[in-house]
């Protein structure tokens, strides 16, 4: 059980990088960008191919970011220059990515290590080796369970995920405090005003889409190394997972300040993974997961409306009751 939880946290953190990327478009630009379903796979595919060919894992992971930058750029140009609605622009790039990803991988699935070879070094390998050595030295009969967790690949992935989430969050916090970052945030708010302040909104939208998809590809590269394969379908439904993480995080951590917002994303992603791990443990089939996630997100997104509906119902009952004046309540609702 402990290993399952550690694994869920690790996977959650790796998907946390993805959630941070989705936040850039969904919350900051106010665009639901479906490109991510393609660029997540691109990141995984690029990293996997490079790892199989013996490229340094750190280098391979960062090189995968390039795929996201290109994907985001294409969606940005389709949307701003060619005036295609953002949703459709994302779908177009995502669809194109499917072919590109197959070209990159040469087949639908690349296992890490590939069939026939014994081992492939990933970004987690040095840590796993280190902890295994440490465990071998210190493990005793009574503390074996503890050292078993420490030397598991899940624990190393958790640490790596944590480092990436923290570093990315700090960079994002800094970036959106700069003049350029402020201009991008304002673009998501009010394009007319931003142009009146002499800012080229087209460039801002393209930059933001590129940065978002860069994070998504980075996340894809990490996820592929964690699950030990890159698969052509690994991006399917990713946007829904991203939104689920985002909403869960926002509800639990809140959105009062940008700092909170940033913390909310990985927290949401981890909680989502833990929930998934638990329902799987309770016997849900893996095939039903996407249905489960989609329904959860649909409910979460419609929560304000549902809440309003029940408030109204509640108020109606109050007004039909003879005594009491609830005009205050009604006023609140109007606002």
């Amino acid at each position: 059980m402990a290993d399952i939880i550690v694994g869920a946290i690790a996977l959650g953190l790796l998907w946390g990088v993805f959630a941070l990327g989705v936040h850039l478009t969904y919350r900051i630009l106010d665009i639901a960008d479906l490109t991510v379903e393609g660029t997540l796979t691109t990141g995984g595919a690029m990293a996997a191919v490079m790892l199989v060919n013996g490229v340094n894992p750190l280098l391979a992971t960062f090189a995968a970011i390039g795929g996201g930058l290109v994907g985001g750029f294409i969606t940005g140009v389709l949307h701003t220059k060619l005036k295609i609605p953002a949703l459709l622009a994302g779908i177009l790039t995502m669809t194109a990515c499917y072919s590109i990803n197959l070209r990159i991988m040469g087949k639908g699935n690349i296992p890490l290590p590939p069939a026939g070879s014994k081992k492939v070094r990933t970004i987690f390998t040095p840590l796993i080796d280190f902890f295994t050595k440490l465990a071998d030295k210190h493990s005793t009969e009574s503390s074996a369970w503890f050292w078993n967790i420490i030397k598991s690949s899940n624990f190393s992935a958790l640490l790596v995920g944590l480092v990436f989430v923290i570093v990315v969050s700090i960079i994002m916090y800094w970036f959106f405090g700069t003049e350029l970052g402020s201009a991008i945030r304002a673009t998501g708010n009010n394009q007319k005003m931003v142009r009146a302040q002499g800012i080229n909104t087209t460039v801002m939208i393209i930059i933001c889409l590129m940065l978002s998809n860069a994070l998504v590809s980075l996340s894809g590269a990490l996820i592929a190394q964690y699950q030990a394969y890159a698969d052509i379908s690994m991006g399917i439904g990713a946007i829904v997972i991203g939104l689920a993480s985002l909403i869960i995080g926002e509800v639990i951590v809140g959105t009062k300040t940008f700092k909170r917002n940033l913390i909310a994303l990985p927290v949401g992603a981890v909680i989502y993974r833990i929930i998934i791990a638990l329902v799987m443990k309770l016997g849900m089939e893996a095939n039903d997961l996407k249905l489960f996630t989609a329904i959860t997100v649909a409910i979460c997104l419609s929560l304000p409306l549902i809440k309003n509906f029940f408030l109204k119902l509640f108020n109606k009952r109050r007004t039909t009751a003879p005594a009491g004046d609830n005009s205050d309540l009604n006023d609140d609702k109007e606002v």
């Binding site: 201009a183 945030r185 304002a186 708010n189 009010n190 005003m193 302040q197 002499g198």
Partner: peptide
């Protein structure tokens, strides 16, 4: 104005009108 940004952030955007936005 940009609704989700605070007063000073809005003013700062305006103070840089006509300038390139840097890091």
């Amino acid at each position: 104005t940009a609704a989700n940004m605070n007063i000073e952030e809005n003013l700062a955007l305006a103070l840089r009108r006509g300038q390139a936005r840097t890091l």
